[in-house]
Amino acid sequence: MSGRHVLIIGIAPNAVDFSDPDLPPGADADTIAAGLHEAQRLFAEQGDACDLCLLDLKGPPEAPIAAQLASRPYDCIVIGGIRIPKANLELFEAVVNAVHRHAPVVPIAFNTAPANSVEAAGRWMGQGRVTPGG
């Protein structure tokens, strides 16, 4: 495994509502940020690159996702930290649909924590690729 490029889409750690009871106990911005950095390190360790598209929740997710997907080809897109809190259902749908519109052939994977993003992407890596602009 090497030379592939992964995008992780999630909520910026400082924008997460940690009072949501659906979130794991003890979750905080530092833990999420550390997990994302660990995921990037693990991807690099196996020769793959990993970009982050972290949503600030100040507007619809379409524009930042479209911009990131237009910037380079991706072999897999991992969506994480959005589908678990029930309050994020509409955001989750918007993210999935934005990815589908702007990268229709790229496999989508879902993680359960930032650190298992490598495992999530590995399930789908190599089954599609999008080039910048579509």
Rank of each mutant, 00 (worst) to 15 (best):
residue 6 V to T: 05
residue 24 P to E: 10
residue 124 W to G: 14
residue 107 P to W: 08
residue 92 F to I: 09
residue 5 H to S: 15
residue 49 A to P: 01
residue 20 D to Q: 05
residue 28 D to K: 08
residue 14 N to E: 15
residue 54 L to Q: 03
residue 44 A to M: 06
residue 34 A to M: 07
residue 125 M to H: 08
residue 12 A to K: 10
residue 5 H to N: 11
residue 126 G to A: 06
residue 5 H to E: 12
residue 106 V to I: 13
residue 59 G to P: 01
residue 108 I to H: 06
residue 23 L to E: 09
residue 116 N to H: 05
residue 72 R to E: 08
residue 49 A to Q: 03
residue 96 V to T: 07
residue 7 L to P: 00
residue 113 A to W: 15
residue 122 G to A: 07
residue 108 I to A: 04
residue 53 C to G: 00
residue 55 L to S: 02
residue 58 K to F: 08
residue 77 I to M: 02
residue 77 I to T: 01
residue 126 G to H: 01
residue 116 N to L: 04
residue 89 L to E: 14
residue 7 L to M: 06
residue 40 Q to C: 07
residue 127 Q to P: 14
residue 57 L to Y: 06
residue 33 A to Q: 13
residue 79 I to Q: 01
residue 89 L to P: 05
residue 60 P to M: 03
residue 12 A to M: 08
residue 83 R to L: 15
residue 22 D to I: 03
residue 32 I to Q: 02
residue 50 C to Q: 02
residue 13 P to T: 09
residue 72 R to L: 13
residue 130 V to Q: 15
residue 61 P to H: 01
residue 38 E to M: 14
residue 100 H to P: 13
residue 50 C to Y: 03
residue 63 A to Q: 14
residue 69 L to P: 02
residue 81 G to I: 02
residue 102 H to M: 05
residue 100 H to I: 13
residue 121 A to F: 02
residue 128 G to W: 05
residue 42 L to P: 12
residue 2 S to P: 11
residue 120 A to K: 06
residue 44 A to V: 04
residue 134 G to A: 09
residue 80 G to Y: 05
residue 93 E to A: 14
residue 18 F to H: 06
residue 28 D to Y: 07
residue 19 S to Q: 09
residue 100 H to V: 14
residue 62 E to N: 10
residue 34 A to Q: 10
residue 14 N to D: 15
residue 53 C to P: 02
residue 37 H to C: 12
residue 67 A to E: 11
residue 92 F to C: 11
residue 92 F to P: 04
residue 78 V to I: 12
residue 87 A to D: 10
residue 133 G to C: 05
residue 76 C to E: 07
residue 99 V to L: 07
residue 49 A to H: 03
residue 129 R to Y: 12
residue 93 E to P: 10
residue 125 M to A: 13
residue 27 A to P: 04
residue 83 R to H: 14
residue 21 P to W: 03
residue 29 A to S: 08
residue 29 A to F: 01
residue 95 V to L: 04
residue 9 I to W: 01
residue 56 D to H: 01
residue 41 R to S: 15
residue 12 A to P: 02
residue 102 H to F: 06
residue 8 I to C: 04
residue 4 R to L: 15
residue 37 H to T: 13
residue 44 A to G: 07
residue 19 S to L: 11
residue 111 N to K: 05
residue 84 I to E: 06
residue 33 A to S: 13
residue 43 F to K: 00
residue 53 C to W: 04
residue 125 M to W: 09
residue 22 D to W: 03
residue 97 N to A: 13
residue 41 R to L: 13
residue 51 D to R: 02
residue 33 A to P: 02
residue 73 P to Q: 08
residue 85 P to S: 00
residue 98 A to Q: 08
residue 115 A to S: 11
residue 124 W to M: 15
residue 62 E to V: 09
residue 12 A to H: 11
residue 65 I to N: 00
residue 116 N to T: 00
residue 118 V to Q: 06
residue 101 R to T: 13
residue 67 A to N: 10
residue 1 M to H: 14
residue 91 L to N: 00
residue 71 S to C: 06
